[in-house]
């Protein structure tokens, strides 16, 4: 009240602790952690969601397996093209990796849109922390939930279709998976920036999700794509990682050359996507704020 009087009388404001202590930073890790904790708490309020998200991808993808049964015959051509003779085993691991791709697009990329729908975006943006921290927190939380859902989905799918994967190569699989998640979050930042500007997430997200899913070799090998599309596919972290993860998980063989090649590729893609993602996100956020568009639908 006293401060308000001073403000209205036009006198100089005494330096308060809140003003002197605040120094803008690139990332506020405490804020990121708090956002992650908040997001996880919200997720845990709906435990049935974990089961649903573990089952629904199987329902979405099962038609592909049934189609393979109907038209595939003895799978001679598929085996020649992919190097794998078991279509179910080939595809289920593809669903596992694709669930991280979907998560990075739908959960992280759209995070601010969901906050906007919940009416909390403006309050969140009023917090004296870098916006990047808010995104990082959301990314960490959704990676945890995606891991629980993807693991449950893999377990269900293995049970339903009677398939399994090598445990001996789980180490390199996890390393490649982490590198892929890091690269995918760069893509999420880019998408988040675009969604802040364009608002309507259904169309944009559907488009990005569909294109990236077509380019990721979930139920077909990369060699089934047209030649030009193969090059584009390898610019997708999910495609690069899936090829290696599938090889390790199905063959049970650790090939150091494939492992290192994949890590280098994912490292370069991470640098690219994070640079473009951060620049896009910051520019979009500034653009929207300058125009007072933040809370608009």
């Amino acid at each position: 009240m006293a401060q308000t009087t001073v403000e209205t009388t036009g006198q100089a404001l005494p330096p308060g602790p809140a003003r002197t202590d605040f120094t803008p930073r690139l990332v506020d890790w405490t804020a990121a952690w708090l956002v992650a904790e908040k997001e996880l708490r919200v997720s845990l309020r709906y435990p049935a969601n974990f089961i649903a998200w573990a089952v629904m991808p199987i329902l979405w993808q099962a038609p592909m397996i049934l189609m393979a049964v109907a038209i595939g015959g003895d799978l001679t051509h598929f085996t020649e093209l992919s190097g794998f003779s078991d279509f179910v085993r080939f595809t289920v691991i593809g669903w596992f990796v694709a669930s991280y791709l979907d998560n990075s697009i739908w959960a992280v990329g759209n995070n601010f849109r969901w906050e906007q729908f919940g009416g909390t975006l403006e309050s969140l943006f009023c917090a004296p922390v870098p916006r990047v921290s808010l995104m990082l927190g959301a990314a960490v939380a959704s990676t945890v939930t995606a891991t629980i859902e993807a693991t449950l989905m893999l377990a269900f799918a293995c049970g339903v279709f009677g398939t399994g994967y090598a445990i001996s190569t789980i180490g390199p699989v996890i390393v490649v998976l982490i590198a892929m998640i890091v690269a995918l979050h760069g893509l999420s930042f880019m998408l988040a920036g675009i969604i802040i500007v364009f608002k309507d997430p259904s169309v944009l997200t559907e488009f990005v999700a569909t294109v990236t899913r077509v380019l990721t070799p979930i139920s077909y090998p990369v060699s089934a794509l047209p030649r030009w599309a193969r090059w584009v596919a390898y610019l997708m972290p999910s495609a690069l990682a899936l090829v290696a993860i599938r090889y390790f998980a199905i063959s049970g063989t650790f090939d150091v050359v494939i492992f290192l090649q994949t890590l280098v590729g994912l490292g370069l893609l991470s640098v690219f996507f994070w640079s473009v993602g951060l620049v896009t996100f910051r520019a979009a956020e500034r653009w929207t704020r300058d125009r007072g568009h933040i809370g608009g639908f």
Binding site: A68, I71, F198, D200, V203, L204, E206
Partner: peptide, 28 residues
């Protein structure tokens, strides 16, 4: 939402693509 119109035109083809590519991979 202008993007909706564009997506509406592209969506049917994009939906069909994974089925088509998988089918070609399976049968050759």
């Amino acid at each position: 939402y202008p993007l909706t119109v564009l997506w509406f035109v592209l969506l049917p083809v994009m939906w069909m693509l994974p089925y088509f590519i998988t089918g070609v991979a399976l049968t050759g």
